[in-house]
Design a protein around this nucleic acid. Sequence first.
DNA 1: AATGAATGAGTATTCATTCAT
DNA 2: AATGAATGAATACTCATTCAT
Lengths: 231, 231, 231, 231
Amino acid sequence: MKGNRLAQGKRKIEILLVARDLFAKRGFDRTTMADIAEGVGVVESALYRHYASKQNLLFEAIRFSYEPIIEDVEEAARSIVDPLARVRYAIWRHLRAFAEEPELCRLVVLEARGLPDYLQSEIADLHRRYQAFLLQAVAEGVESGVFSPDVEPSLVRHLVYGTTEHVGWAVLLRSADLDVERLTDDLMAIIEPGLVRRGDVAHRLGSEVTRLANLVNEVARAVNDPAAAGQ
Amino acid sequence: MKGNRLAQGKRKIEILLVARDLFAKRGFDRTTMADIAEGVGVVESALYRHYASKQNLLFEAIRFSYEPIIEDVEEAARSIVDPLARVRYAIWRHLRAFAEEPELCRLVVLEARGLPDYLQSEIADLHRRYQAFLLQAVAEGVESGVFSPDVEPSLVRHLVYGTTEHVGWAVLLRSADLDVERLTDDLMAIIEPGLVRRGDVAHRLGSEVTRLANLVNEVARAVNDPAAAGQ
Amino acid sequence: MKGNRLAQGKRKIEILLVARDLFAKRGFDRTTMADIAEGVGVVESALYRHYASKQNLLFEAIRFSYEPIIEDVEEAARSIVDPLARVRYAIWRHLRAFAEEPELCRLVVLEARGLPDYLQSEIADLHRRYQAFLLQAVAEGVESGVFSPDVEPSLVRHLVYGTTEHVGWAVLLRSADLDVERLTDDLMAIIEPGLVRRGDVAHRLGSEVTRLANLVNEVARAVNDPAAAGQ
Amino acid sequence: MKGNRLAQGKRKIEILLVARDLFAKRGFDRTTMADIAEGVGVVESALYRHYASKQNLLFEAIRFSYEPIIEDVEEAARSIVDPLARVRYAIWRHLRAFAEEPELCRLVVLEARGLPDYLQSEIADLHRRYQAFLLQAVAEGVESGVFSPDVEPSLVRHLVYGTTEHVGWAVLLRSADLDVERLTDDLMAIIEPGLVRRGDVAHRLGSEVTRLANLVNEVARAVNDPAAAGQ
DNA sequence: AATGAATGAGTATTCATTCAT
DNA sequence: AATGAATGAATACTCATTCAT
């Protein structure tokens, strides 16, 4: 009699946590139901009382960890308005996820995506919800004229998540630490100039310069030739 | 007598191609030696005459497709000198690889990296050789003053390969087509301003503004206080 | 549904018995897990619920049959004191084992000993425990002066077990019967004179002869030379 | 082109030697045709040009090494006449075989005997020829009155070969050295008194006693009846 | 006499899942 | 809610042997 009877729901979550850690550490295929059962302290068949199958367990384990993060992001979507700040948040949040929950990331990035019916799965839905924030941020940035009209939201999505995951993955493999703040700054420094409307940085400066130049010329003329001034 | 006896070396390559396609389509774990043998038209044990193990077959399959690409890239490294053109080439080449050999990419990106001893494997070596080109291009760009001194080569590497793989992967999953030229242009448009020395675009404008502003102040003072003017 | 669900522990022993018989009849290498499973009436994988591996099954099968015999012998060690009777018991017990459990003997003698790590295995330990009885019997016999001081316990061990196994083996191969009592007597008849102290048989006669010879000489002298007699 | 074409018959023997060593070292089942082929320096299929099957190769390998020894023994049978000396020779020769060719012994004792059709095989024939010498020696010893009439030749055979093999086996397992001369002496010391006619030890003493007793009687009579004395 | 490709029947072991208790 | 016995389909890998060249 290894595993005690647990209050309803508690055992279910316990299984989830163990499964998530093992899937993350060893991968889905290389984790057995026996491993999970042993980790929980029950026999294999007990798992099936709570989850219909190994796949189902994977889905639930991912959702369990993924949903809080998504809610995080969706809240941020409401409180941050500046498009550039939103992009920055997306990068920062994703890097932090890798830094804080590397297992979950490995799970989603490597395991879930390899599954045959990934695109139709709930996991893909969660993924879409999670990334929708950035897509919308870019779209709005373009619309409001802050971002260049040439910027394609989906490309920015690939850029942001592709880059952060590539970084995160490298860090995970080497089990090194991830300097979230610094990486966010560095990445923003590279892409910001390419995102914002040329006007917003150079153009605004440019037209201001023109205006000033004209003004200066005018003034200068007035000073030199008082008779002509004001006419 | 399913498979005819083949000339020396030919069967070996045939197995490689079948294995690569299956590994890519279904993943390493979900591909069995029986699948491969059936694909080739021989019995399982025949595979072992040519490859010592399933892992070995995976390694050889990857190398077989990867090495020509690497040689491609290494040749480009010699013929392209402009740092920006090199970055563009890295993006373009990687996207083309995804467009032309999606199986190989799935293999390397998803399967090989998940293997327990990936970092020590020859595949990781190939990977490093392949990416060395971009790392060096950025480093040289920074050194020669074309790129901003703040640009971190390894971050650019993550950016370029992370983004292109993220794009490629999405395209692969949807089995859609990949517009290599357009994506290359778009991505370059976003990152180029962030890579090249700030001075080249905004700094020049900035100093012009300062000059003008000083001029205006001077003029303004002269107008309001003619006595002080010229002093 | 080939095999009924059995009460706890019963199936485990059932497997043991089937495995032992098959290992004994066909040898370890020539017995497959499939054979054993079929003999039990379950599928192969069911065996692994009870035994970790084929080797483990062999070890347990041997121990299961061997241990009772060893306890038998160890009890005898306490109840028999005469060294010669102990040697006789060792022969008799070993021959009886061959007569009653030929499979076990084939197993231990032929299969287990051929295993690569035999000397370090528990089976070798059981073997040592089993033979310790005879080694000690001879050593004590020598010490107490009943056996000749030249008798080497380990040689007697080789002699007793080597001979009985050779006999047993021949009988096994021909599936003939083994006349335990007669063989014990015959073997004892050959080795007993060589074991016991020469004195116990010949010496006593020898000294009697000397005494008589001296007496005769004395008498003869007295007869021939009456004057010297009585001095 | 690994293996050169060898003069007829030479390759055949080369294979035999390699096979014998491998069978002996690793056992029949644990030696593969590939192992043997590699040892010889040819491919597996080349072995079949010389030997019909793996079993056949085992038989030939054993015979090849066994026959010279048998001829040795058969020559000894002609030159040694004393029964006791013959028994001693059998022990000594068998121990020497173990000391000099442990591989062959392992082969014959452990591998060949486990084969399903051992009794009908040529190897069993060789075995019988080899042991015939001792059987006959004992039979003749009994017949000529040197050995006790109770001595069973086949039991002596079991005793001699069983004991020597048991010794040899233990030595082989521990890869220790075998003191052939000493072991021969020690074993002979134990069994000789049991083999030779009791008379040769006790009977001689017995007849001496009888002679003395007669003498005493004679003397006694002479004393009592002086007139009859000396007649 | 030898090669190298190919076969087919194994071979122990794994594992998700089911089911009676 | 949990156990433990049992299943069956797989799974990578082995190996003696055959055959065309």
